[in-house]
Measured scan of single mutants.
Amino acid sequence: NQESVVAAVLIPINTALTVGMMTTRVVSPTGIPAEDIPRLISMQVNQVVPMGTTLMPDMVKGYAP
């Protein structure tokens, strides 16, 4: 099972992602793959992401799977 990126904290809208904001977990449905965390650093979320929420591609500005 592939791990997906999950919010480790509440991430406010338009916040640039940092390593500490993200964790990984096997979830269903799957979100952004864990191995993409290095690509996500400094990208901004386009909505509020509650802690424990799986990051989906459409939540991150400029992210393309």
Results as ranks from 00 to 15, higher is better:
Asn1His: 03
Gln2Glu: 15
Gln2Thr: 12
Gln2Ile: 10
Glu3Leu: 04
Ser4Cys: 03
Val6Pro: 00
Val6Thr: 13
Ala7Gln: 00
Ala7Cys: 02
Ala7Arg: 00
Ala8Asp: 08
Val9Ser: 14
Val9Cys: 03
Val9Lys: 14
Val9Leu: 08
Leu10Gln: 15
Leu10Trp: 07
Ile11Pro: 00
Pro12Met: 05
Pro12Arg: 08
Pro12His: 08
Asn14Leu: 10
Thr15Asp: 05
Thr15Arg: 07
Thr15Gly: 09
Thr15Leu: 13
Ala16Ile: 12
Leu17Asp: 01
Leu17His: 00
Leu17Gly: 01
Thr18Ser: 12
Thr18Tyr: 05
Val19Phe: 14
Val19Pro: 12
Val19Lys: 12
Val19Met: 07
Val19Ile: 08
Val19Leu: 13
Gly20Met: 10
Met21Arg: 04
Thr23Lys: 12
Thr23Ser: 15
Thr24Cys: 03
Arg25Phe: 09
Arg25Trp: 11
Val27Glu: 07
Val27Tyr: 03
Ser28Met: 13
Ser28Gln: 15
Ser28Glu: 15
Ser28Gly: 05
Pro29Phe: 05
Pro29Arg: 03
Pro29Trp: 03
Thr30Asn: 09
Thr30Ile: 15
Ile32Ala: 04
Ile32Gln: 01
Ile32Leu: 05
Ile32Cys: 03
Pro33Tyr: 14
Pro33Leu: 04
Ala34Lys: 10
Ala34Cys: 05
Ala34Leu: 05
Ala34Ser: 08
Glu35Met: 04
Glu35Tyr: 05
Asp36Ile: 07
Ile37Trp: 05
Pro38Lys: 12
Pro38Asn: 09
Arg39Leu: 07
Arg39Thr: 08
Leu40Ser: 00
Ile41Asn: 06
Ile41Met: 09
Ser42Lys: 13
Ser42Trp: 14
Ser42Thr: 14
Ser42Val: 05
Ser42Met: 13
Met43Leu: 08
Met43His: 14
Gln44Glu: 13
Gln44Val: 10
Val45Tyr: 00
Val45Cys: 03
Val45Asp: 00
Val48Arg: 15
Val49Leu: 09
Pro50Leu: 13
Pro50Cys: 05
Gly52Met: 10
Thr53Gln: 11
Thr54Ala: 10
Thr54Lys: 05
Leu55Ser: 01
Pro57Cys: 06
Pro57Phe: 12
Asp58His: 10
Asp58Pro: 10
Met59Asp: 03
Met59Pro: 01
Val60Glu: 01
Val60Cys: 03
Lys61Gly: 08
Gly62Asp: 09
Gly62Lys: 04
Tyr63Asn: 03
Ala64Glu: 12
